[in-house]
């Protein structure tokens, strides 16, 4: 073995030159994580909190409340991909997104709870609380005129604010842990951030577009009740925002985000090119859609939304497998053994 070693080394040297791409730079995952924490995640939670506080001031004026609710939801869409750490599921509490943005909501249940002055927001009936319950209460005429609606809305909003504040304040301490956990294996911050990014992307495609469109196997028609934000009619704006949030995570801060990370590895540039081409195709498909595409009469077999779904589908592999392979990021949550 010893005799072989010099030979091997010579061989390796001979193989080495011009293999390293010129643009290959050292990439620092600590800076990467710090940037996501400081430039994206923490500001996003803080802004959601502020928008929620503003909504509580406007809650009794319907017009103002509706306008502010929209701002809140936009702010929410900027935190929804960060369902890890303080926002992740923990025994009885589901992830923040599930706790405050479950849809469709159960109208009958909400009405019943209002009637009975039942302000129970801790149970598993997440379809009677959260942002989309508020939407129903603010935008649906019948709901607006319900006796006791205002108090229910107020309590519902308090519950949301409490949950968001909790996550926000826990991030204060978690941030250090997040930045220090700078490996790439299962359980690392990079793996968590990446996996939730992919999950959020698939959630957008499957639950906000595919399912309401009736694109699941066995579905025989569209399901308008499964449309996100169906009472306010902002479904398209929100889907667009959700996608743009994901694109902003993909981009990251200059030189510090996923894109820069990809640029630092061999083959990363090619993936960026393919992915960005497809991102533009998705954005084009969004442009071609109209808010009315999500309405009851237009939803079934809606050609614009089907194209949108297809374009999102085409983007999936770049985010889901090509990216994790290139970066060597673990794509499972629990560390199964390899060999």
């Amino acid at each position: 073995m010893k005799k072989l070693l010099p030979l091997v080394l010579i061989f390796i040297m001979a193989c080495q030159p011009d293999k390293t791409p010129e643009n290959q730079v050292d990439f620092d995952r600590t800076v990467f994580l710090q940037s996501y924490a400081d430039d994206f995640i923490r500001p996003a939670y803080q802004s959601l909190k502020e928008e929620l506080v503003e909504l509580s001031n406007a809650i009794s004026n319907r017009k103002e409340a509706q306008a502010q609710w929209k701002e809140v939801y936009f702010a929410f869409l900027k935190v929804t991909p960060y369902n890890f750490g303080p926002a992740e599921e923990d025994v009885l509490v589901k992830s923040l997104t599930e706790e405050i943005a479950t849809f469709p909501v159960d109208i009958t249940l909400i009405q019943e709870k209002i009637q009975k002055n039942n302000f129970q927001f801790e149970d598993f009936r997440r379809d009677s609380r959260g942002l989309l319950t508020l939407e129903y209460l603010l935008f649906n005429d019948e709901a607006w005129n319900l006796n006791g609606r205002e108090e229910y809305a107020q309590k519902c909003l308090e519950d949301i604010l409490e949950r968001v504040s909790e996550v926000d304040s826990r991030w204060e301490n978690y941030k250090n842990e997040f930045i220090l956990n700078d490996g790439t294996s299962a359980g690392s911050s990079t793996s968590a951030l990446y996996n939730e990014f992919v999950k959020s992307f698939e959630g957008l495609k499957n639950f906000k577009i595919g399912l309401p469109l009736g694109l699941r196997p066995g579905q025989t028609s569209a399901v308008q009740s499964n449309v996100e934000a169906r009472f306010s009619g902002y479904s398209l704006d929100f889907a667009k925002q959700h996608f743009e949030t994901l694109v902003s995570i993909w981009n990251g801060s200059p030189q510090k985000g996923f894109k820069a990370y990809l640029n630092s590895v061999e083959g990363g540039e090619a993936l960026i090119l393919s992915a960005e081409e497809q991102i533009q195709a998705v954005q084009g498909a969004f442009q071609a859609c109209d808010s009315s595409d999500f309405s009851e009469s237009n939803l079934d077999q809606n050609p614009n939304l089907i194209i949108l779904h297809t374009e999102l589908q085409k983007l999936t592999r770049f985010f889901k497998s090509d990216m994790s392979s290139l970066l060597g990021i673990a794509i499972t949550y629990s560390s199964g053994d390899g060999d």
Binding site: R216, Q219, S321
Partner: peptide, 28 residues
């Protein structure tokens, strides 16, 4: 690594749907 998307088509009606793998499989 791979991304596998499954399509199930009703042989009678011709309507085709896309499967969400997470419904049946764990991430591993």
């Amino acid at each position: 690594a791979g991304t596998a998307t499954f399509f199930v088509k009703d042989g009678k009606t011709g309507r085709e749907g896309v499967v969400d793998n997470r419904e049946f499989l764990n991430p591993h």
